[in-house]
Design a binder for these strands. Structure first.
Lengths: 111, 111
DNA sequence: TTGTATTATTGCAATATTACGATAAAAATA
DNA sequence: TATTTTTATCGTAATATTGCAATAATACAA
């Protein structure tokens, strides 16, 4: 087994889970942190910054790119990555939609 | 390999990643959805609802419990699970802290 | 062209996750 | 007590993820 049964769930549930997965590794959080901080758009001094092998960073970048969170543009012989603000807002509201759904008062409260 | 190098990252980064991981499976999103919707606190009619085996549901519940998102209390022969509102707010603000850090204008903008 | 710098991809090895059947444990009921 | 109900845990199989060295692939410089 080990294969997620996506067909059992709604596309919304699958999408949110898949988004969360993009954030579910500290290296990817660190990459995002770096991009949030740094003025310049950035390439692979992430390798210096994070202490992971170049191949590993590249792999994490790809996952963030696949989730749409990053965009990269070729800048000479290096590649310039940055966050996609439009997508960022989208992602933010997807999570907020979830978080805002807790209607405070402890309802049937057994806990 | 296959082991995440947590020592390379800050505890904040590790914590957020670990939180995201709790949300990174559609079955766990579905469980949360169910708990957000349902008045009653709930046990394992999640098995009916989700179509996964009882053991699998139990495993997902445990991960959510370990992340602190759920609390369970023994209610006779069944167990009553519900979201922990305090923790929920905490989790919400952890994510919001991240999301709010994007300072709009495309800065050095190479992308 | 030849070399250098930068990033992606490929091909592993180690570990983690997902899923489920079988079984155990605890409480309610007959 | 014996049975049923409910949930957790164990063991196992299948798949996914993480990480890296080696190797492409691309652009620039000499």
């Amino acid at each position: 087994m080990g294969i997620t049964k996506k067909d059992l769930f709604t596309s919304q549930q699958n999408e949110l889970a898949s988004l969360a997965k993009a954030f579910a590794h500290p290296a990817r959080i660190a990459i995002i942190d770096y991009l949030l901080k740094s003025e310049t758009c950035i390439n692979g001094d992430l390798v210096q910054e994070l202490g992971l092998a170049q191949a590993t960073i590249s792999q994490h970048l790809r996952e963030l790119r696949d989730a749409g969170i990053l965009k990269g543009s070729i800048e000479g012989s290096s590649i310039c990555y940055c966050l996609d603000p439009t997508r960022w807002k989208e992602v933010e509201s997807q999570f907020n939609n979830l978080f805002s759904r807790l209607s405070e008062p402890a309802k049937g409260d057994c806990c």
